[in-house]
Write a protein that binds this DNA or RNA. Sequence first.
DNA 1: CAGTATCCTAGATGATACTG
DNA 2: CAGTATCATCTAGGATACTG
Lengths: 123, 123
Amino acid sequence: MADIEPTSAPAFTCGLDATLRIIAGKWKPLIVYFLAQGPCRYGELRRAVRGVSDKMLIQQLKELEAEGIVRRTDHKEVPPRVDYTLTPLGHSLAEALAPLCVWGSDNMAAVARVLAERETWSR
Amino acid sequence: MADIEPTSAPAFTCGLDATLRIIAGKWKPLIVYFLAQGPCRYGELRRAVRGVSDKMLIQQLKELEAEGIVRRTDHKEVPPRVDYTLTPLGHSLAEALAPLCVWGSDNMAAVARVLAERETWSR
DNA sequence: CAGTATCCTAGATGATACTG
DNA sequence: CAGTATCATCTAGGATACTG
């Protein structure tokens, strides 16, 4: 069969689909949302996003940078100092994420209950 | 506030974290968002959420049902007729998802470009 | 401090075939 | 039509150790 376009035209089913391809994963939304509160250094971010490993954090940051969501600034100092900021695009994404944050807060009890049940039948 | 359960106590870092634990995955947001446009039958949904397999669709629907996001109605007919609706909680979630949908539409070109680049360096 | 480099596993996803 | 049941795959994510 013939190869489809090199660019392949993902042809998103909708805007949500497109967004998900960017922020899918366990950490990206959290990183973006935390950075929305202001620029921050690597170590700070690492502490803020609880549970993330160096490997994952760096990997996600690089992707976000390539995606134009985050900007990395290396101050070329010793000891190293690097900070991360949202680009304007990143800020707009963070704003779009805000309602999910609110929803989670509003329904935190329900969410916790659901997760507890999942534990139950996976044991 | 005090800990409720000493055992699991997920202790979300924020509302966004909580939300993500519910809708993580490739399909759930799309399912919820499509159902927001009205109740629909299994087959319809299957066609709407492009690329999903029976296995995944059913699995995600069951989880969403257990989570109180979706309601399943079996009309007990032959041939089978089953439809799926959002619960009020589901609707509120869909509303929280809407901005992501808009963001994706607004930035679809940028997103497509990013995905194309990913293809490039993964080959 | 801010990363790299390996190795490894669980769980998420996919393909295919079958059924009431 | 609306699912189940298996098997195969894949890759996101985690553990650990090391470095400029």
